[in-house]
């Protein structure tokens, strides 16, 4: 495994912890690895993978780092969501459905949001459901296609 250096790990984890107001010890017991130059994954510190066959992946995709501001992955957003205290936008059910259809959404007065720029966790009620880039009042949709819903479908219907 290609471990991220202690300095870079500290930089990435501090960024995520401070951006989303996570507890100081949230990442204790975890380590960062760099499977490639674009992505950082997070693993539990006692992970003991195999050398052969060479792993296709280890742990949870955590950050996309080949960009000016690292982007938290949707997987990591769902993971930290229950513990995050800021950089969150909370949508109504109707708007969450639109978000699940991968629409960009203009921020509305009824959307609860505590920041005005950057990557934000998307919540509906207490559930963290995705991540978006908030820029110029628009929630740019980052929801994965694999977790999207089709037209005419609601994530809240029976």
């Amino acid at each position: 495994m290609n471990f991220v250096s202690p300095e870079d790990s500290d930089r990435y984890l501090t960024f995520v912890r401070e951006r989303w107001g996570l507890p100081d010890d949230f990442f204790e017991g975890y380590r960062l690895i760099a499977p490639n130059t674009k992505t950082i994954n997070i693993i539990n510190a006692d992970l003991n993978p195999v050398d052969e066959p060479s792993p296709e992946s280890c742990g949870l995709p955590f950050l996309r780092v080949k960009m000016i501001i690292p982007k938290i992955t949707t997987a990591a957003a769902l993971w930290i969501g229950p513990h995050a205290t800021k950089a969150i936008v909370t949508l109504s059910k109707d708007r969450t459905d639109r978000f699940f259809r991968r629409e960009d959404l203009e921020l509305q007065p009824e959307d609860v949001c505590d920041v005005d720029y950057g990557y934000v966790l998307v919540k509906c009620g207490e559930m963290t459901v995705s991540v978006a880039l908030l820029k110029d009042g628009i929630l740019q949709n980052m929801h994965p296609k694999a977790w999207s819903i089709g037209e005419g479908i609601s994530a809240f219907s029976f």
Binding site: Y30, I42, I43, N44, L47, P49, V50, D51, E52, P53, S54, P55, E56, S57, C58, G59, L60, P61, T73, T74, A75, L78, W79, A146, W147
Partner: peptide, 30 residues
């Protein structure tokens, strides 16, 4: 394996290692 990773990501699994090998040929040293 795409489905394996998709599920692992959605559930937030940090302790998973995904490998692609004929199960009968996994090296003993693993």
């Amino acid at each position: 394996l795409r489905a394996v990773r998709n599920t692992a990501d959605r559930l937030g699994l940090t302790n998973i290692v995904v490998t692609c090998e004929d199960a009968g040929n996994i090296p003993d040293r693993s």
